[in-house]
Amino acid sequence: MTDGVTSSELRRGVFPGLQLQTYADETTEPFWSAARHDRLVVPRCRECGTFRLPPLPICHVCQSEVTDWEELPGTGTVLTFTIVHHPLHPDLAAVCPYVSAVVDLDGTQGEGARILVNVTDCDPAAVSIGAPVRIVFDHVNDDMSIPRANLVADRPV
């Protein structure tokens, strides 16, 4: 399906990734550099304070290019999710069902800085809108650390 992934490595519930290179440029490299060290670092407009993901080069609120990179707590809540049952590729039969979610990240304004992630290591039926999650990184190679999410059972909502 993609470089570096073989059927033997596929695990139910864990989407293996489609793009295992970051193709990082100056606007995205700080995210990946931090991800390699299990830190969630996101660009924030120095002028108006708006966070943004993906790390596009200009603030969509005030159009400033002046950006700071801020470390977030790495937690968030599920805005919405789907449980993918049908494999769009034959290899994914070993992976389905898996959960993909849109997560509002704690410490940000939410909208405009959401993260799209596979929610792993849980019963898909346990995922719900509003569920607290923690972002974790899967270091698949020297370049790409895939962000995923795990349910946080003991954190107060």
């Binding site: 489609l18 793009q19 290179q21 193709y23 995210f31 790390p55 596009l56 993918v84 993909s100």
Partner: peptide
């Protein structure tokens, strides 16, 4: 472009049906 698809391609969201399900 690829620097930005790196933020979505590994989510398991693969097509318009997945987005429709989320919405």
């Amino acid at each position: 472009s690829r620097p930005y698809t790196a933020f979505s391609s590994n989510s398991g969201l693969l097509g318009p049906g997945h987005a429709a399900a989320l919405i």
